[in-house]
Amino acid sequence: MTAYLLRRGGQTILTLLVMSILVFVGVYLVGNPVDVMISATATPQERADLIMRMGLDQPVWVQYWHFLKGALSGDLGNSFLYNRPALGLIFERMPATLELAFSALFMGLVVGIPLGVVAGLRPSRPESRGIMAFSILGFSLPTFWVGLMMILLFAVKLDILPASGRGETVDVLGVPVSFLTLDGLSHIFLPALNLALFKISLVIRLTRAGVSEALQSEYVRFARAKGISEWRVVFLHVLKNTLIPLITVVGLELGALIAFAVVTETIFSWPGMGKLIIDAITTLDRPVILAYLMITVLMFTVINLIVDLAYTLVDPRVKIDGGSE
């Protein structure tokens, strides 16, 4: 187990290194941030001073070396735009994005699994067909359009839910969260639902496929031959087998949720990382871009690790060991 964790840690560091080189060189090639930042009326002298102050006159490998040294001591550099530590900027915005992503994931599971079970148990019933039709819509309609329609319906026409912002927040361990206040809940509901729509559809389909496959299996027939209740057959024998593929996909999708949050955050003016990274890209604010991607890669790694560990809880056939795969 320790060997396994060490190996995973090593892989993560390697990924971070390669990714940072690619982004560093990529942003360097795209353009000069000074062109974006400095006012049109600045003198050539002012311009040269700024370039030197930011260290942009150095060769790219020297700049990268400075970045690497800083990164090893936990400093990913200051934002060109705000002249504040990039990491700090991201950490300020991260809770809002994570709250949104986890709320959407929660909705996806809480709504998707029961609907998937219903559709899997009785595929030919009208309610099951309705559920499947809904899931096709959830897959096909673009997130930004659904978001706009939701605002139009719930905020403008019906005027029952707010269209933007986080609402009232409470601090939990120093982190502001919305879902603990009624006002905050009403604010997070629409963006979370918007973001969750695709996940709900995905979870419905996965659950339905898993349930109908398990129902045809010999072990379900054998379980029924024992005379146990249909309730136990479905919720223990069938559902536990269905969870295996579900965990894989949900783990991968959590990363996608955080990434796709950009669109939803823009539509609902949700003050998360999405807005920050969009701004950073347009202004070529390299430290912020880099810091954002480093954090994202780290999060993905941690999520994947949790997924692998969760496997061992659900599927007894999976064992984690330090040996080669």
Binding site: A225, N241, P316
Partner: peptide
């Protein structure tokens, strides 16, 4: 079922639930 009458199936690899 399972009390007064019981059944055993063909493929022992498939009759037991793998995750229980």
């Amino acid at each position: 079922r399972g009390d007064r009458m019981a059944m055993i199936f063909q493929d022992p690899m498939m009759t037991l639930n793998p995750v229980l």
